[in-house]
Nucleic acid binder design. Structure first.
Lengths: 354, 354
DNA sequence: CAGTGCTTCTGAATCGATACAGTACTCCGA
DNA sequence: TCGGAGTACTGTATCGATTCAGAAGCACTG
């Protein structure tokens, strides 16, 4: 049988509480007794307080659940995601907290059950559509939740670390418009719920189900509307997933037909790099023949000379952790909006046709 | 106050156990009563059995701790690691189990404490040197542990999913030796405990502290000894970490001096890709001027035309999960050695000098 | 020597759930 | 009408820890 606090207490001939104190409140007993207790523990092969029992009593388990609707491997393919998680892990570590990775199953019931049974102190949701069954299950748990996206203004209790998505792409769009670009293509994932790479001409930004893509598309729409390019004139392509390969395929949809767009706007750097791949295989020069812009500013963007919108991924993760583990009293301070910045590199330039 | 099983039981006027049964053993009570209980629960905002309390009673938490001695971001930079974790996550998901990521702190005491307090059912250690304080802390917990590396034969209880590291590089080394290569350079991380990129001429394989690097170097040593190239003639370079950039820098140490090695052997694909980068910047042709070989066979190896030793990362992860969550009765079957395979691509060829 | 204050230790209550033995009740057949 | 089987539910012990009020012991003070 495994030994418990009680076993050790009996062995030494003291009470359970005293043994407990020996481990977690050394100042409450004499060093001699403490040593005697540890001796007995060693003899009995007792490893110290059982974490499960401790967490029941303390009401704290030392782990936060990280929710995302994707496979693990996919989640960690994007350096942006990795940076975010790293920031989160940094803060978590400061608070002696681990990260419980919960890639959510396709099956809605199973996903909800996973959320219900997770032994965690809170949740960090990351790239999880509003309509997902896990969102409701989370609310039921009544644990603190922090999101990496802005939540509906409806809930003043909501905690999030976000950026102003639409403002960021509005600025980026204006920059491209000023360079003379008028024939535009947009590539994004989750423009439609289906995971397919294909043009989706009809979609208006408002109809895009996933918050991030919706906002970013809206920003671009507004920017080009200012120079007279209306939304229906902009080619929008849905990428099956946020990967280089999918984006390269998506880019083919618009590159291989005339007239070719002069600028391709992607909602992430992963997608933008795929677009660059597509240009490369066709012998087209980025920033001369076709301008390409991304979002996130991952390390590869620098080496690829990709113009992009920088968002502070690491900082987002750090602050998300802080909001969960050490929330400010003031509710307003629990809704953080971080700045973004347009980083101009070689992949954008004046529109080629005069 | 948060509502509990008891609260709901009082509200409905039944016993605690009945409410418990309503949630986890529906066949033990009438559908009517069950509905009544759920109604009350909804009214009171009770979300169902508390996972922490349940896990205390059941003796099962539903999470396994994943240990590695590195930052999160580093761990997920290597596609091999990601694949392994994906396999692990797959099996875990089948057993309704989550992964608790535990990047271990530098501080030995803190790392040990983290292991002691982790609310988990078992540990999977991955890329953790034997000397690390967490190893001892783990043994104390007396929970099942699975390693992704072969453990000392001393412990017949040890569970691991490994490959025959030395045999793999022995085969790879022989292949290169047969191609005529005699001037060899080796690049590995953790040849010495310090995280610095620099030649480490003196190190013998036996002295390398980290198991994986030690074995792989030994395999290569033996292969070249067979054709008369003794160990001291082989240039060994320590890479600060398992990254492309570090490897490129490490490769510089041997490429920029005469006579240049005809083959550079890296203990991982990440490192090998860095070597290819270094060749590229110097206008050297892989497989002609310098042969390069890696280890792992990550996806990028295919596109880069990298000759490498394939190891089944995904399968390793899956089996590691199975060993932890559904261990075979037979102790011998808990020690799995998976096959490896030499995959020849364009980055290796006959030694250039006749 | 009673009274005070301090440290050290004890014992009981508590957390939220599950397991199990036992009770109450219904139903059926003889 | 009685007995036995089966179902629905109750009450209590238990898991392994933490917490807290208070008891015991001790030294010191007046």
């Amino acid at each position: 049988m495994r030994s418990t606090l009680q076993t050790v207490a009996d062995e030494v001939g003291v009470s359970r509480s005293t043994v407990s104190n020996a481990y977690s409140r050394p100042d409450q007993l004499s060093p001699e007794l403490r040593e005697k207790i540890f001796d007995a523990a060693r003899r009995l092969g007792y490893a110290g307080p059982d974490p499960a029992a401790r967490s029941l009593r303390k009401g704290r388990v030392g782990a936060i659940g990280v929710l995302f609707s994707a496979t693990l491997s996919y989640a960690f393919t994007d350096p942006y995601a990795v940076q975010f998680l790293r920031g989160l892990a940094e803060t978590a570590e400061l608070h002696d907290t681990g990260l419980l990775l919960m890639p959510l199953a396709e099956d809605a019931t199973a996903a909800a059950a996973a959320v219900q049974n997770a032994v965690v102190d809170g949740f960090c949701v990351y790239c999880l559509p509003d309509w997902h069954s896990a969102q409701a299950a989370m609310r039921l748990r009544k644990l603190p939740v922090v999101s990496s996206e802005r939540r509906d203004a409806g809930d003043p209790e909501a905690r999030f670390v976000a950026i102003d998505e639409a403002a960021a792409t509005l600025a980026a769009g204006r920059y491209l418009a000023a360079l003379g670009h008028r024939r535009i293509a947009l590539i994004a994932d989750w423009i439609v719920p289906e995971r397919e790479t294909r043009p989706v001409a009809t979609a208006r930004p408002e109809d895009v189900p996933y918050y991030v893509s919706r906002e970013r598309l809206a920003g671009y729409r507004d920017a080009f509307a200012e120079v007279g390019v209306e939304w229906p004139e902009i080619a929008t392509v849905n990428a099956a997933q946020n990967s280089r390969a999918a984006a390269a395929q998506a880019a083919s949809c618009v590159l291989d037909r005339a007239p070719r767009p002069t600028a391709i706007l992607a909602v992430s750097d992963m997608l933008a790099l795929g677009v660059l791949d597509a240009l490369h295989t066709r012998g087209l020069r980025p920033g001369r023949d076709v301008s390409v812009i991304g979002f996130d500013d991952i390390p590869d963007a620098t080496t690829a000379g990709l113009t992009t919108v920088r968002q502070p991924a690491l900082e987002k993760g750090r602050q998300a952790g802080a909001l969960l583990l050490n929330p400010p009293e003031d509710l307003a301070q629990r809704q953080v909006v971080l700045p973004t910045e347009l980083v101009v590199r070689a992949s954008t330039g004046p529109a080629p046709d005069a």
